[in-house]
Design a protein around this nucleic acid. Structure first.
Length: 557
DNA sequence: ATACCTTTGAAGAAG
DNA sequence: CTTCTTCAAAGGTAT
């Protein structure tokens, strides 16, 4: 868990100011459409084909030509993926005429982050409405074909006017700030069936293409600040908030009122973040919303009572989760493959392919998020959420991993030589100097803490063990190995020393575990990027610069 | 209807 | 101190 060092402020600024795009294949997506296929897309194409190839007709495997043709039509997917934006921007902004507590440094238009007073917070799920005072909302306008219809069904959701239809048509994923996902926390506190249609613009269903109503979660409140904290805590993510004067989306003055305003007001009433105090709700001004909220909040049975007593406060998202939230839409949009598991594999690879700087953004962001979370919920512990999910997968996993271990040991698969990573699935990395295939530009040499390249190559090994018919050359199933038991890896104690599987003398049975990584390193050491760089340089040096930290080998001894 | 899958990272528990 | 487990998101898939 590399954390940015104290320079956090600087990092934050960097984040806010740069609007750096995640390399991946965003660049030139627009051109891509007009010009046709590009190298950039080959990346995903490869991934797709490798992922879906053979086994499915999802279309990822479709020829580039067809895909090219498909692109434009695919926009709806994109649009839906950009569901995070809506028409609240201006109105919300008005609610904080002074720019609100959280003012962002200059932020490129198109990435408006709003501070929503009182929306159910992302950290509260399942019927738990946050009484918190503020919520971040990303107000990026999607390519919404904002149908005259739903988007503005509700009078309280006045048409963005100028925004009306397809305004942001030009807005493509690659225009998204890497941090956009921050605002996209889903609100599980709304029950699916009760989503207040009026709250959001219609979004084309990614699958059916049929206009659908955006789920409240798509309105994505970011975080709630504890009422007491509001106005006191400088928001760590303040830089995410659009500047006041920034031309966002003009909404007719007098335009709209946030449906949850009453909630906001109510929020102020519950000063204590304590879960037990969070559920009080005032009826939203809108009946529909009210209904939705009530249904979400109220739920029959004693179970509900328990929830009321102890709402589920979600864990803060980590860097990768933040990244995923942002990139998922892109990946999904570019690939008809919708299966999250597969998408996540791609995302995982892409994550590793990110440059240090790019990852640093997310680490910093995650760090801030954790900070905020801790401020909001001082007493909260990750353990509080333990057992909230019923997981039988655990058993499966164990069995699975055991099985895998057995298979491994039986087959005694020799170390697979270093595979030219990513070639199959993640070419993008190469395009932007990923360590994967373009070793060592000075910057990449320092690499992200995740030590991308090597990781991939390692992961590629277990490929054959993939239990799922992904038919993808993607190195997957790393997690499976990670659970391969207590066989502690010596290397884990010395992350920097771990060697690639291919290394001579390494144990024949590739033992891939999860991040030896930085999780085991003290934050001080991991302080990202500076400390990390040092550490990386120190321990890995040239060869290991991209060394897979996740690789565990016994040869390290 | 619900859990699984899949990813990485963070946090906590256990050894 | 190290290792393992759980959860965070997401949405198709499987049970």
């Amino acid at each position: 868990m590399p954390q940015l060092n104290g320079g956090g402020g600087g990092a934050g600024d960097e984040l806010g100011a740069k609007d750096e795009l995640i390399s991946f294949k965003d660049e030139g997506e627009q051109e891509e459409k007009s010009v046709g296929s590009t190298a950039a897309r080959t990346d995903l194409d490869e991934v797709k084909s490798s992922l879906v190839n053979e086994s499915e007709n999802h279309g990822c495997s479709s020829s580039s030509d067809s895909e090219t043709d498909r692109q434009p039509q695919n926009r709806p997917d994109l649009e839906s993926s950009d569901k995070h934006r809506d028409h609240f921007a201006e109105a919300l902004r008005r609610q904080q005429p002074d720019g609100g507590l959280f003012r962002a440094p200059s932020y490129p238009a198109g990435y408006p982050f709003l501070v929503l007073p009182e929306l159910a917070g992302p950290y509260l799920s399942s019927g738990a409405l946050s009484p918190t005072a503020r919520t971040y909302l990303q107000m990026k306008w999607p390519l919404l074909d904002v149908p005259s219809t739903a988007a503005l069904k509700d009078a309280r959701l006045p048409s963005p006017g100028p925004l009306s239809n397809k305004i942001p048509v030009v807005q493509h994923p690659h225009h998204m700030h890497p941090l956009t996902p921050l605002i996209t926390y889903s609100n599980e506190h709304f029950s699916p069936g009760t989503s207040p249609a009026h709250l959001s613009p219609e979004i084309l269903d990614s699958k059916t293409g049929i206009p659908r109503t955006a789920h409240p979660s798509e309105l994505s409140p970011y975080y709630p600040l504890s009422p007491g904290a509001v106005g006191q805590i400088p928001h760590p993510l303040s830089w995410l908030v659009p500047q006041q004067g920034q031309p966002m989306y003009s909404i007719p003055a007098g335009g709209f009122r946030h449906p949850y305003q009453t909630l906001a007001m109510n929020a102020s009433m519950s000063r204590h973040p304590s879960p037990s105090h969070r559920i009080t709700l005032h009826k939203p001004c809108c009946a529909a919303v009210s209904t939705a909220l009530e249904s979400a909040v109220k739920s029959p049975g004693p179970l509900k009572k328990e929830e009321e007593k102890k709402p589920h406060i979600k864990k803060p998202l980590n860097a990768f989760m933040l990244y995923m939230k942002e990139m998922r839409a892109k990946v999904v949009a570019e690939c008809t493959l919708k299966e999250s598991a597969a998408i996540n594999q791609i995302l995982g690879r892409k994550w590793h392919s990110l440059s240090r700087e790019e990852q640093a953004k997310y680490y910093e962001l995650a760090r801030k998020e954790r900070q905020l979370h801790s401020q909001l919920y001082p007493g909260w512990s990750a353990r509080d959420n333990y057992g909230k999910r019923k997981k039988r997968k655990r058993d499966n996993k164990q069995a699975d991993s055991t099985l895998r271990d057995n298979i491994l040991s039986q087959s005694k698969k020799p170390c697979i030589p270093y595979l030219p990573p990513e070639k199959t699935c993640d070419s993008p990395s190469s395009s932007h100097g990923s360590m994967l295939d373009s070793p060592a530009t000075p910057s990449t040499a320092l690499a992200s803490p995740a030590a991308p390249a090597a990781t991939h190559s390692e992961q590629a090994q277990p490929l054959s063990l993939t239990t799922k018919p992904t038919h993808c050359s993607l190195p997957v199933k790393t997690s499976g190995f990670s659970t391969s038991g207590p066989s502690s890896s010596p290397a884990s104690s010395q992350p920097g020393v771990s060697l690639p599987i291919s290394s001579p003398g390494t144990q024949t049975t590739p033992h891939i575990s999860r991040p030896i990584s930085f999780t085991s390193l003290p934050p001080s050491v991991l302080s990202f990027p500076a400390s990390f760089q040092k550490a990386a340089i120190h321990s890995h040096h040239a060869i290991l610069q991209s060394q897979p930290l996740s690789l565990v080998t016994k040869s390290a001894e």
